[in-house]
Design a protein around this nucleic acid. Structure first.
Length: 1144
RNA sequence: UGUCUUAUAGCUCAAUUGGUGGAGCAGCGAUCUGAUACGUCGAAGGUUGUAGGUUCAAGUCCUGCUAAGACAACCA
């Protein structure tokens, strides 16, 4: 006969360790896959973490979510493979290496540098760095109970992985979705490199700088378009810039479509020439003081500070579009596209400037985009060193070959330039005595002023990004890049996105949906060192190009190149095509610098590899295919949709435009399919005050410590139950403690209770031969019914990816129903008397509840659930290998559940009256009264009467109605039905009802209706429109709760008093048994010193006392020596001595 | 700056299609217990971030604002 294990105390941490050991020995994870039908797969993709950082508590949360659904689907009988993966490329890794080696980008491959490191060594360091914390990750994965196969992970730097990525790119190229273009990117001329947004977000990169800004006049070519009379002089657009050095590269002006513009007749503030300017109406008073509205044009003399002005015309931005203006600084003409016209830009605002934006497509991302959309050309009159091209030359104000930003010059250069400027400016009488170096911006402004094209100049302080290495301001500069033409597939991506089940939905429709609507082409290029090289080789003239899609192709092409004499040896010489072993693929390296030493040949031309690496996001987005080395191996898994798309993925919401997008984009563009059907985007883990966790602030929670201290189950449960996965979680260790006490403590005790008594009885559940449910008592059938409802509910929540609701439902069941009602009320059945049918049924019922709960909770609390399940069952099979129980509808009895709820409520109300009246539960009372308004209600309570009576220690329940006693009733309106009926009269009806409650109640009770006359209309209140609630029985002690009212008879007869005293005695004896350390089965001898106040109570209840306390012999004695007995206070007034002895 | 999310008791969260705000924890005061680090009972705690709007009726729908966060951008 099986004995159920008993434990001294709950140690969740130890349970985790024990079960983990069991899993390893039992190979439970492997079994959970191998025992499932491979034709019933449920596909999960693991988003690869980067092992160059330590795992944090947020990883535990994110991985718990993944684990929950994989385990749940396994319970449902699906086969869920989980291949782990590592993300190994990218900037954070490069930065990590640079930090640990104490080097910067400039040292890499630069032999002149003191800290020179070859690209080869650098990449070796990266390869090592990236797996730095692999063991920590494996450790936390095991300890938190995350089941993922780490024995054969996909690793993005491995050649087989890279080969699949290359194949995908080649495929895109074949579909004509790959092209070379340029984008405007932050660029550091001093460092000679582009900067990523990550680098720009380094602390201290954005700094306040003072710049010379200018409001500039662009002369309209043909005034006649405006249909405005009497335009004196020329008409100009006003535009403001903080970077006057970009003005020579201006090719367009942008206006806002719906912005109102005005034509203002006035004078040029510097030259005094009459002119008309155009600017946004909202910004008029920034340039023309309101005080000057009344100034007369006739009175104005050039040089006057107060300038008269007059609005002579209006236009909307859209009206201005297409108007041509004269080039501002005609150093160079654009060679391609349209130029020097007004166009509409969605980014134009009236928060500052003039509402008209100067567009230099080469030096601003918005500028570039809007120019491209409108087919405008660009001028790039600055080179990569940050200097003007030689053509931008002015005889007086200089420029050509000058740095455009003052910060790029060193002191010596500045001095030389200053002397040059002083000489020429003074010679041309522009400035009398130049004292300091004038920046390019300042001198451009001077030139414009000279030419009558300047309207206003000022210095302006704003924040501007700086290069984190050189401390110099960055330029936005057009850089060559390779693009994926994702815009071409935009509509399809939007369409397919609508078939994806997003949790929460708003992330899919909102954040992700909007992102797709505004999709730009995907910039693939990264000018870095550690990543997958772009597999494109181009001839110098750009005419010939080869896109490589496999190692085999590359080997062949190199052989060809050798034959044609552009290569000497083949780095892939040892590689055997068709052999997919790791060894074979480790005979070469596709990374830099090796890739760059490969030259190919086509049509007699030598081809060189495009120097860039691909965006690491492409790496991870390619994982569905690359993890199985598609299409070189496992072709059918993808093509036959066996392992694609995923049924489920989950990552942080920060991945919306990261992994979620790249997976989607690559799948849509290559396979015309979604990459995942269900996606959960989880929120962040914040500290308990709602701040972001960071090492710097010292508020980061160490996952190892937490798991060790609280165990994985409580930690996981807390994180899942506390917030929806997509809400941010305020992580508070105290919350884990609470979960530990409340859920796990309660379950542990419930199990302990079960094991204690079934072992005492030598009882074990015979799973195959249980008492039919219909033969069990109401309480049993009730908890079984509740359990069915729980199974139904929890299954639904898991299926809907709402684990927090599943967890909360389980918590409620365990605490409210199982422990604090079922077990409490069943206690006596377990520990009294011999084995009986009822006792067996009680054991079986509790056993079923506990095993089912273990199953339901096992996805969230995998260790504890398995521990409890295995304790309860005989064959030591893991709960994770079981099949989920199905809802047994035939055991569900909703009306029974309702009845029981009434019993719980009534009990609680009676207890509350007792409390108010200071009557202990141990004191029996004679009766409670329940006013009843209908028979159905009475029947319901009648069915649970006995439970209530024993729970609250009362002898009887009387149902009373109006004919027997007076009942005070309240009226509550049902706004839901009445609202529709009354509409506007609702308030009046409510007021009427407040004053005439009694009238309405009696009418409805008699006739079922009550008519209110209001403003000539009749409103008929019917039964469904009101709720009639009994609230009081005059002369009784009552309590009410919603529609329920209970009254308690608080009179005590002598008999009741004695019974109460007897119960007190029982309680004292029980306490003494407990203190003496007796077993629950020990029989005892009790001696009580006689006491006139007590004797009758004991004599009249002798058998009760004896049976409750397992007393074989109770003696009332004259004198009990205080040495052998305890002094006992039975109540405030009665004290006596009692002794107990164990009988053998 | 844009897109999106969130804001309810001291804390963590609930509140069906709009129908008149509830739990748990903590604290206070009682109490029960032969499963209990449990439970039970009581009082207290709220202008539902803020200002408007729609409606007979708004925590819920709409708009503005404030704060926090994520992502994207940083521009004239």
């Amino acid at each position: 006969m099986k004995k159920y294990p008993e434990y001294k105390k709950l140690d969740l941490s130890q349970i985790s360790k024990d079960i983990l050991q069991f899993w390893e020995k039992d190979r439970t994870f492997e079994k959970s896959i191998s025992t499932r039908d491979e034709n019933k797969p449920w596909v999960f993709y693991e988003g690869p973490p980067s092992a160059n950082g330590m795992p944090g508590i947020h990883h535990v949360m994110a991985r718990a979510i993944k684990d929950i659904f994989c385990r749940f689907k396994t319970l449902q009988g699906y086969q869920v493979k989980r291949k782990a993966g590592w993300d190994t490329h990218g900037l954070p890794i490069e930065l990590g290496v640079e930090k640990s080696l104490g080097i910067t980008k400039e040292d890499i491959g630069n032999e002149k540098s003191k800290k020179y490191i070859s690209v080869e060594d650098y990449n070796k360091a990266c390869r090592k760095e990236v797996m730095k914390y692999t063991d920590k990750w494996e450790d936390v994965t095991a300890k938190m109970g995350y089941w993922v196969d780490m024995s054969d992970p996909y690793i993005t730097y491995e050649n087989r992985y890279i080969e699949s990525v290359w194949w995908l790119l080649q495929n895109l190229s074949k579909k004509d979705l790959l092209y070379k273009g340029f984008t405007i990117q932050p660029y550091s001329p001093a460092a000679g490199t582009g900067l990523s947004s990550h680098e720009l977000n380094q602390p201290g990169c954005y700094r306040d700088v003072k710049d010379r800004t200018a409001t500039v006049q662009f002369k309209v070519k043909d005034n006649s378009k405006f249909k405005i009379q009497n335009l004196d002089g020329d008409v100009y657009f006003l535009a403001w810039t903080t970077t006057p050095w970009t003005l020579p590269s201006n090719t367009a002006l942008a206006v806002g479509k719906d912005i109102e513009y005005v034509f203002v007749k006035s004078f040029n503030p510097f030259s005094g020439t009459p002119q008309t300017v155009i600017l946004a109406k909202d910004l008029l008073n920034k340039y023309f003081s309101e005080k000057h509205t009344d100034l007369k044009f006739e009175d104005y003399k050039p040089g006057d500070k107060n300038i008269p002005f007059k609005i002579v015309g209006h236009a909307k931005g859209s009206d201005l579009a297409g108007i041509s203006y004269e080039q501002l600084l005609p150093f160079v003409q654009p060679t391609d596209g349209d130029a020097f016209k007004v166009l509409v830009g969605d980014f134009v605002t009236t928060t500052d400037g003039t509402g008209i934006v100067h567009i230099a497509p080469s030096f601003g991302a918005d500028d570039f985009r809007v120019a491209k959309q409108n087919g405008f050309g660009a001028l790039t009159l600055v080179d990569k060193r940050g200097k003007f091209l030689p053509e931008v030359q002015d005889g007086v104000f200089l420029y050509g070959e000058e740095f455009v930003k003052e910060a790029y010059l060193n002191d010596v250069e500045k001095q030389t330039e200053f002397e040059k400027q002083k000489k020429i400016l003074e010679a041309n009488h522009k400035i009398k005595d130049l004292k300091v170096y004038l920046s390019v911006d300042e001198r451009i402004v001077l030139k414009l002023q000279e030419e009558g094209k300047l309207f206003k100049k000022e210095t302006y302080e704003h924040s501007y990004p700086h290069c984190w290495r050189t401390d110099k301001p960055v330029l936005y500069y057009p850089l060559d890049s390779w693009f994926i033409k994702s815009t071409a597939m935009k509509d399809r991506m939007i369409e397919l996105n609508k078939t994806i089940n997003w949790k929460p939905e708003a992330t899919g429709t909102g954040r992700f949906g909007n992102w797709l609507e505004n999709l730009n082409d995907w910039n693939l290029s990264r000018s870095r060192f550690w990543g997958i090289p772009i597999p494109i080789w181009t001839s110098e003239d750009g005419a010939e190009q080869i896109v490589i899609g496999s190692a085999e192709e590359l080997k062949k092409e190199i052989d060809n190149a050798i034959a044609k004499g552009v290569m000497q040896t083949n780095p892939l010489a040892k590689f055997v095509p068709g052999n997919f072993s790791k060894e074979n693929y480790d005979t070469f390296d596709l990374h830099k610098p090796y890739a760059d030493t490969i030259y190919l040949e086509k049509n007699g031309k030598k081809l060189t590899r495009e120097p860039d690496l691909i965006d690491v996001w492409f790496d991870s987005g390619a994982m569905p295919y690359a993890q199985v080395h598609y299409p070189f191996e496992n072709k059918e898994l993808i093509d036959n949709k066996k392992y694609f798309p995923a049924d489920f993925i989950a990552e942080g919401v920060d991945q919306t435009r990261g992994w979620f997008f790249t997976l989607h984009a690559i799948a849509v563009m290559n396979f015309d399919s979604v990459a995942y059907k269900n996606v959960v985007s989880n929120g962040l883990v914040l500290d308990k005050n709602g701040n972001k966790m960071s090492k710097r602030l010292g508020n980061a929670v160490d996952p190892f410590e937490t798991l060790e201290k609280y165990g994985a189950d409580a930690t996981r449960w807390y994180m899942i139950a506390n917030a929806a996965p997509w809400d941010n979680l305020k992580f508070d260790l105290e919350g884990i403690g609470e979960v530990q006490r409340k859920l796990f403590g309660t379950l542990y005790n419930t199990y302990g209770f079960f094991s204690l008594y079934s072992n005492v009885d030598g009882f074990a559940v015979d799973e195959k031969n249980q008492t039919p449910i219909e033969n069990r008592i109401e309480l049993d059938r009730w908890i079984i019914s509740k359990l069915q409802s729980l199974v139904e509910e929890v299954t639904l929540y898991y299926n809907e990816y709402e684990p927090h609701r599943a967890a909360r439902a389980i918590e409620e069941f365990v605490d409210e129903h199982l422990s604090n009602w079922y077990v409490r009320l069943s206690r006596r059945r377990f520990w009294r008397g011999e084995m009986s049918g009822d006792k067996i049924a009680a054991y079986e019922t509790l056993h079923t509840c506990l095993t089912t709960v273990s199953q339901l909770m096992s996805p969230i609390a995998p260790f504890f659930a398995d521990w409890m399940y295995q304790n309860l069952t005989i064959n030591n099979q893991s709960v994770h290998l079981t099949k989920l129980v199905e809802v047994k509808k035939q055991h569900q009895d909703k009306s029974l559940e309702e009845r029981m709820e009434l019993a719980q409520k009534i009990s609680s109300m009676v207890l509350s009256i007792r409390k108010k009246e200071n009557l202990k539960v141990r004191q029996p009372l004679q009766r409670i009264q329940i006013p009843i308004l209908d028979k159905v209600f009475q029947d319901k309570i009648d069915a649970v009467k006995d439970l209530i009576l024993s729970e609250v220690n009362v002898k009887e329940i009387d149902f009373v109605n109006e004919s027997q006693t007076q009942i005070v009733k309240n009226l509550k309106l049902n706004f839901k039905t009445l609202g529709k009926k009354c509409g506007q009269n609702m308030k009046a009806v409510q007021a009427f009802a407040n004053d005439n409650g009694a009238k309405i109640i009696s009418s409805i009770e008699k006739t079922g209706a009550f008519t209110i006359e209001l403003n000539g209309a009749n409103i008929v209140l019917e039964v469904e429109d009101v709720e009639i609630i009994p609230v009081d029985i005059p002369g009784w002690k009552v309590a009410n709760n919603g529609p329920l009212t209970v009254a308690l008879d608080v009179n005590l007869s002598e008999e009741l008093k004695n019974e109460g005293l007897a119960r007190e005695v029982v309680n004292r004896i029980q306490n003494m048994r407990k203190d003496a350390g007796f077993e629950v089965t020990d029989k005892i001898l009790v001696k009580i010193q006689q006491n006139s106040e007590l004797d009758n109570a004991i004599k009249n209840n002798l058998s009760y006392i004896c049976s409750e306390t397992l007393t074989n012999d109770l003696q009332l004695v004259q004198n009990l020596s205080a040495a052998n007995a305890s002094k006992i206070e039975v109540d405030e007034l009665i004290t006596t001595l009692i002794s107990i002895e164990k009988l053998n």
